[in-house]
């Protein structure tokens, strides 16, 4: 038994070495190589962002080495170190946590490797250095757009509940901050409930069921993403209350667009992952060639409602 196992293991190791050799050979042709690290390959939006990055890189004949950050900041720092050792021509990072950005900027500056922050803009102290730029959509704006929509719908008066994403994640913090700052401008609006549903539809279903059971009057639900917003809609429809509550999400997923088309979801926010990915690759190429690139390119969030959803359907 043990022999069979050890032979199997040997075969596996040998096989993986073969594959490793194969990928090295393709890199031998003098191609531009971009090191890319993304927070989490399992996330729908992040995967889309990566696809867009890859497409753009393929168009200009560059090779992408993609790494999964697995939601672990430490893992991402290791990946940056590995990229530098591999001597990639530029690094694109979808940074997991703002607080590690200064460290990453320093690593790249020391190694003189161009660095592009994609999707999330780090704080200014992490944008130091001649070859460090950001192509991003600040999360606060998404939350602000949701709040503006809700305030208008409620005519500046009513009770709002917020469905939070995974606590401590960048979108949860940024979007919630933007929402609350905007809501605070309207004295008639009160935030009466705030609870996490971890960006997940089933969690949101349970939380909203419990909110409604408490008997508090809720006029609008602002969710940090579409999955949670849809969860809220499902519960409201079940309790025949959807016409009394405004619901908004973020992401403009295909499910959300369908819900908007059917009049079940009131609003979502489109984050232009395509423009972020393409813009990021273009900025990296310019930096490699030594051309001028603006420190920060903002890719705007766009509000999506029944009036304009067709523009975003894929």
């Amino acid at each position: 038994m043990k022999k069979v196992l050890s032979v199997l293991v040997l075969l596996l190791v040998a096989g993986s070495l073969l594959f490793a050799g194969g990928s090295k050979e393709t890199g031998a042709a003098k191609k531009i190589r971009l090191g890319v690290t993304i927070e989490d390959f399992n996330d729908v939006f992040m995967r889309y962002l990566l696809d867009q990055l890859r497409d753009e890189a393929t168009k200009v004949g560059a090779e992408v080495i993609a790494m999964d950050g697995k939601r672990d900041p430490n893992e991402q720092i290791k990946q940056i170190e590995n990229f530098i050792t591999q001597k990639v021509d530029a690094i694109l990072i979808h940074v997991i946590d703002q607080t590690i950005a200064p460290r990453i900027t320093k690593l790249c500056n020391d190694a003189k490797v161009p660095l592009v922050y994609v999707n999330r803009k780090p704080t200014d102290d992490a944008l130091q250095g001649a070859k460090v730029v950001a192509v991003a959509s600040p999360e606060e704006v998404a939350g602000k757009l949701q709040a503006e929509f809700v305030v208008k719908k409620l005519n500046g008066k009513g009770n709002v509940a917020i469905l939070l994403g995974s606590l401590g994640s960048a979108p949860q913090i940024g979007r919630t901050k933007g929402t609350k700052e905007e809501l605070a401008k309207s004295p008639g609006i009160k935030v009466i409930r705030e609870q996490t549903a971890n960006f997940q539809r089933p969690d949101a279903v349970a939380v909203v069921e419990n909110w409604l059971a408490s008997g508090d009057k809720i006029d609008a639900i602002i969710a940090n993403n579409d999955e949670m917003a849809i969860g809220a809609v499902l519960v409201l429809e079940e309790k025949k209350m959807k016409d009394k509550v405004v619901v908004t999400g973020v992401d403009a997923t295909s499910d959300a667009l369908k819900f908007i088309e059917e009049g079940r979801l009131d609003m979502t926010v489109f984050q232009n992952g395509g423009a972020q990915g393409r813009g990021g690759v273009q900025a990296a190429l310019k930096l490699i060639k030594g051309e001028q690139v603006p420190k920060f390119v903002e890719i705007p969030f766009e509000p999506v409602t029944k009036e304009n959803y067709t523009k975003y359907k894929k």
């Binding site: 939070l164 606590l167 705030e194 609870q195 419990n210 059971a213 408490s214």
Partner: peptide, 15 residues
């Protein structure tokens, strides 16, 4: 517990 803490509006961190 989860249902009760939600109804009583206990904050997410504290839950």
């Amino acid at each position: 517990m989860k249902n009760g803490l939600d109804i009583l509006n206990v904050s997410a961190d504290f839950q």
